[in-house]
């Protein structure tokens, strides 16, 4: 179970991790400044296993993989959003940050709600409001990618099996 941190629509990568911190790329450095420009002291409050919730087009803007890396390194278990920007979506799957597309859950979950998710089945449960949701399922290829833990283990695994 994790606590939900809620953000709005069109959360861009400059908000997730501002460019001024891109002069280094260690996960700890990026985690310390995650969501800094959203002005909610998120990085100080978040705990391992918590959940991030966004509106539509979450992660728009730059291609910086530093964005999902910073979220993952903060301890966030999963990002639930109404929809994801293309490069962020790809980057998250590639680095093994679980994401779930579920417009109903994303709009109904409030900041501070206690939420549990089952990433393998796509079920989301809001313990605070006692409501259940079902996220959109991923195409088979992406499920494989997620199961492998990201793009590199996926490619390496395929090479071994070849």
């Amino acid at each position: 179970m994790g606590i939900a941190f809620k953000f709005g629509h069109d959360i861009d990568t400059d908000v997730i991790i501002p460019a001024r911190y891109l002069n280094a790329s260690t996960p700890e450095h990026l985690a310390a400044h995650c969501m800094e420009d959203a002005g909610t002291s998120f990085a100080q409050k978040v705990k391992a296993g918590d959940i991030m919730v966004g509106g539509k087009n979450f992660g728009c803007g730059s291609s910086r993989e530093h964005a999902p890396i910073s979220i993952k390194a903060c301890g966030i278990k999963v990002v639930i959003a109404e929809s994801f920007a293309r490069i962020f979506y790809r980057n998250s799957l590639n680095i093994g940050l679980p994401i779930m597309e579920c417009p109903e859950a994303a709009s109904e979950i409030s900041e501070g709600d206690e939420v549990t998710v089952d990433i393998s089945t796509g079920t989301i449960e809001n313990k605070t409001t006692n409501k259940q949701y079902q996220a959109r399922s991923f195409p088979p290829f992406m499920q494989e990618l997620i199961r492998a833990g990201g793009l590199i283990p996926y490619i390496e695994g395929r090479k071994k099996n070849a």
Binding site: S62, S63, R64, E65, P68, I87, R90, N91, N94, I95, G150, L151, I152, I155
Partner: peptide, 10 residues
């Protein structure tokens, strides 16, 4: 098209 660093590495 733009991609992230892991796609790039691959």
């Amino acid at each position: 098209t733009g991609v992230g660093s892991t796609d790039l590495a691959a």
